[in-house]
Amino acid sequence: MPSTQYLNDLTIQVRRDILRMVHKVNSGHPGGSLGCTEFLVALYNVIMTRKEGFNMDGIGEDLFFLSNGHISPVFYSVLARAGYFPVEELSTFRLIDSRLQGHPTTHEGLPGVRIASGSLGQGMSVAIGAAQAKKLNGDKHLVYSLHGDGELQEGQNWEAIMYASAKKVDNLISVVDLNGQQIDGSTDHVLPMGSIKQKFEAFGWTVVEIEEGNNIVSILEGMSEAKSKTGQGKPVCVLLKTVMGHGVDFMMYTHAWHGKAPNDEQLAVGLSQNPETLGDY
């Protein structure tokens, strides 16, 4: 297992990637990306069992589906730095002819991506299908998915949440990024959802809460607990409490940076708060 120091260094490097990627094209979604950086770093470098290379079928390894596809900057950076494609390719994010589309897609053949996402609310259904395929194949590996909290306002999620428990899809860990923010404001302002924990529990899921979703150690502990609860007849939901824009002080605790890129000056401030660790692309 990589050291905590390495994971922290990687986290900071990924943050730099995110900021530089969205700054270059003056578009993209830094807020949610920064909030989920620790989680995706931990997922790809510690939590998941992955095979070398990339095979769409994913047989014999854990799988991950990003449902809230707009946080593509963090996804791309983590994938590249996990070896799926050259780190230099991050410089093509959102540019014409790039494999790194604004939202992730299989269409351009980018290794590491198994489904297109962006139109919200579809990823849990896909993850369930992949999990049921694993059961049919006798493959004991797990399927992970990540969803925004605002994304839960899409009705398809609740079809999927109802189905997963009814059909005992217990090789699935669906993680909800609870940052409390969405485009038009806080989730409580836009559409208060009440207790997401109680909702998942009422739908028959096992729920694990990670209070410090921007702390690598807390994430590893929480996900370890989540893994231990798979295979017991219920799907597992992880409520990951994060801060949108984490690691860049002026982007934190606000929805303002959901889909806005920093200008030159803001980029410089953001990068200065995240000094280079493993080398920029």
Binding site: M56, D57, G58, I59, L63, F65, R114, I115, Q122, G123, M124, S125, V126, A127, I128, G129, A130, A131, Q132, A133, K134, L136, N137, D139, G155, Q156, E159, A160, M162, Y163, A166, K167
Partner: peptide, 27 residues
């Protein structure tokens, strides 16, 4: 064992079908 009753939830059905292809199934 190769049949999935989804219930009255067509959106979920299409997503699950997409997921089942990942693993080599033909839904």
């Amino acid at each position: 064992e190769r049949f999935f009753q989804i219930g009255i939830a067509e959106a979920n059905m299409m997503g699950i079908a997409a997921g089942l292809t990942i693993g080599g199934k033909i839904p």
